[in-house]
């Protein structure tokens, strides 16, 4: 079967046709104009991944802590990851780079602080 996806690596936004096997496995891609496109297409059709960024309240601080995943995580795990963040209780101080949750939901990715909250 075929799937159309748009590459997000650069402003050209090549529309690519991806051929998948009957079991949904990546077979081939056309329509890309560079190798980054085909790599993206393969990943996107096999296991779409995204970076997540969010904020978590910090006790005693007006400003919540901004966090990110340390690497892209499977897109279909986003709702559970957001739920997991809701059970985090944080206290200041927190420093940029601090690991808030290690290996979230077995994705191999950490939740990492992206700003300092020093009271």
């Amino acid at each position: 079967m075929e799937q159309i996806i748009t590459c997000i690596n650069c402003p050209v936004g090549c529309r690519m046709q991806v051929v998948l096997s009957d079991s949904g496995e990546f077979v081939s891609v056309s329509g890309n104009t560079c190798p980054r496109g085909s790599a993206y297409a393969k990943q996107e059709c096999t296991l779409p991944e995204r970076m997540i960024t969010a904020v978590i309240p910090v006790e005693g601080s007006r400003i919540p802590l901004s966090v990110k995943t340390s690497s892209p995580v499977p897109k279909d795990k986003i709702p559970q990851i957001m739920d997991a963040l809701s059970s985090v209780s944080l206290k200041a101080p927190v420093r940029l780079g601090d690991v808030i949750i290690s290996d979230i939901l077995n994705t191999g990715s950490d939740i990492v602080a992206t700003r300092n909250i020093l009271l």
Binding site: K68, L96, T114, R115
Partner: peptide
């Protein structure tokens, strides 16, 4: 400070940073 999403710094730092990280 309020752009907590990533996508900053690809050209300048060759890494993708969030807004607060870039500012820092």
């Amino acid at each position: 400070r309020q752009c907590i999403h990533n996508g900053f710094g690809l050209h300048r730092f060759k890494e993708e940073l969030t807004g607060p990280e870039y500012a820092q």
